[in-house]
Amino acid sequence: MTDKPIIKVVNLVKKFGNFVANDHLNFNVYEGEIFGFLGANGAGKTTAIRILCGLSHPTSGELEVAGFDVYKQSEQIKKNIGYMSQKFSLYENLTLRENIRFYAGIYGLSKKEINIRMDNLLENLHIGHLRDQLIGSLPLGWKQKLAFSVAIFHQPKIVFLDEPTGGVDPITRRQFWDMIYQAAKDGITIFVTTHYMDEAEYCDRVSIMVDGRIEALDSPAGLKQHYHAENMDEVFLKLARAS
């Protein structure tokens, strides 16, 4: 983790009619860190992440992702980010190899490059034998892990994970976080939303959203100390009740 900001958000506001989903958000995410974006359902996490990925337009505010302006340079941003949502899995009726070829292909990777990286990936995960299996025949845990591998296959600067571990068993969740750590070690900045408070402990820094506002932003240890809490669960409950 460096002190060079890779995401800059100043006074981000997003309104749907009269409803304010994001109320003047201000934060920086630094290169190489694992940034946790916490909040209850409906607190505005997904709205913010969608704006940063270019899936939704902000109402107002200044935003920079990977050094590019969200309003004017969304094409460059798209080349430099990866995205994975809870819903996302790979195409069920394509094989693992076809899925990887397809997704890597739309990011413009060459065939040769794709093959080299694919061999590495399959070897690292010890799943060479699954290469030509249809994704639909794999268990959910594997699908999620592979979806993550595909999301970072084009080696983006930042990867946005929107509740990536939803509906996954604890063991797979743990393995999933190992993969996140590995990606962070490889220099990819991780922006992750979750509502599992134990996962918050894995993050370098955590922001907690309540009703569209960021109520707290610090390292897990810092937050626990500040709110005199045993764990992140308590921190979160204290913040949520206060509002």
């Binding site: 995205y83 994975m84 949502s85 996302f88 739309i106 990011y107």
Partner: peptide, 13 residues
């Protein structure tokens, strides 16, 4: 429905 549309929209396509 599968959520793949979002991934495509986030991509450079």
């Amino acid at each position: 429905e599968m959520g793949t549309m979002e991934i495509l929209l986030v991509s450079p396509l």
